[in-house]
Amino acid sequence: MKGDTPVQDGTDVRETVPASDMTHVVVAFDDNRLIGDLFGQFDQNLALLERRLGIEAVGRGNQVIIKGGHEGCEQARLALEALYQRLQQGHELHPGDVEGAIRMASTEAGQLSLPTLEPRSRLAFAQISTKRKTIVARTPAQDAYIRAMDRADLVFGIGPAGTGKTFLAVSYAAALLERGEIDRIILSRPAVEAGERLGFLPGDMKEKVDPYLRPLYDALYEMMPGEKVERGMLSGVIEVAPLAFMRGRTLQNAVVILDEAQNTTAMQMKMFLTRLGDNAKMIVTGDPSQVDLPRGMVSGLREALEVLEGVEGITRVRFTEKDVVRHELVARIVAAYDKAGAAAGEAAASTAGRTGDGPTTPPRRG
C-alpha cells in the first residue's frame, strides 16, 4: 500500500472550505482483490467517509481520489489505510469498523497519548483476538481500555451504556482463557438491587441470577463457541455468581469482572476488591450517573474512585458519549440526558442558594 504526497489543488469542491485550503490526495492499494470490501457495496464505505469528514472520495480501480479540506483528507487517508490493513490481516469489515476507523483517524494525536498507551502508529489500534473473533478498538478510549487491561491488575472502566466496557472486558477474559494464561473467568454483578434479595424469584440460584447477567453471557458466546461456554460453566472454569457470594474467597489465576458496579455499596466494593489473588486481574465496569441505590446510600464505585486515586497498579479509563459504539442515536441520547442532568443540578444549586444559608431579614412585628 502506498499513499501519494498530498498536492494542493484550487478546485472548489466544498463551498465551506476556502479554495486555498483544498487538498487533492490519491491513495493507491496494492491488492485489487480487497478493493471491493474496502470500498463497500455500492461504495457505501466511501460514502460514509464523505458524510463524516466532509470530503469527496471517488474510487477508480485500485485508487481512491480524495478532495476536500486538508484535515478531512488526511483523516480519510488514515481511515482507509487502517481498514485496508484489517482486510490484509484476513478480517471482514462491518459498518461499525468503518465508523471506528473514522473516529480514530479523527482524533488529534495529542488525545491519543493517553497514560495507558505506548508510543505507536495511529493505525496500530489495540485488539483482542480469539480463534472465533478479533475485536479492534473503535475509539481512543476503547484503545486505552484494552491496553490498560494488558498492563494493570485492576482496571476501572467508567462511562455510559453502549461504550463497550462490559463487552471488551469479557472478550479480554475469554482471550486470556483461550491462551491458557488464566484458569477461569468469574463474572459478578449486583442483581435486582444492591441488597441482592433474590429469594422471591423462582428457580435455583443460577436461574434467579441469569437474567441480570445476560450481557456478560452474550459477550462470552460471541467470543467463544457455545459448547465451550457450556462446558466451562459446568466445570466451573466460567463462574457466574452474585456479588454477595464473593465474600471470604481469594480469587487466583483468573479474570474477575464486576459489572454494573455503581450499584454496589461501599462495603460490597471493598469486599470485592480485596478478593484479588495471585495471577489475577480485576475489571470493574459501571456508570456513576446510573446509580439505583436507595437515596442517601453511597455508591461503592464512586467511593472507590475517590479512595483509590493515585494507587499504583490501578488504572481507570473514562468513556463519554463520544465513545458510544451502538446506533449513532444512542450517543445523542446520552448527551441529551447529560445536558439535562447538568441543567437540573445547576437549577437545584441556584434554588438552594436562594432559600438556604444566606442572611435573612427578621419578620416585622405589626
Rank of each mutant, 00 (worst) to 15 (best):
K2Q: 08
P6R: 00
R14M: 12
T16P: 00
P18I: 02
P18N: 00
D21A: 15
A47V: 10
L53E: 09
G54P: 15
E56F: 01
Q63D: 04
L80Y: 04
A82N: 10
Q85P: 12
Q85N: 11
H94V: 11
E99K: 12
G100Y: 05
A101D: 09
M104C: 13
Q111Y: 10
A124H: 10
I128Y: 07
K131C: 02
R132N: 09
I135S: 05
V136F: 04
I146E: 00
A148S: 08
D150G: 07
D153K: 12
G157M: 05
G159D: 05
G164F: 10
L176E: 12
D183G: 15
R184C: 11
I186S: 01
R189G: 04
A191R: 01
L201W: 01
M205A: 06
K208Y: 02
Y212G: 14
L216N: 05
P225L: 01
R231M: 14
G232K: 02
L243N: 06
L258T: 09
E260R: 05
T265C: 09
K270E: 12
K270T: 13
T274H: 06
N279P: 08
A280M: 08
S289Y: 04
P294Y: 00
G300V: 13
A304I: 05
L305E: 07
G310L: 06
F319T: 08
T320L: 05
V324I: 12
R326W: 00
A331M: 11
V334Q: 05
A335M: 09
A349V: 12
S350K: 11
T355F: 11
G356E: 05
D357H: 10
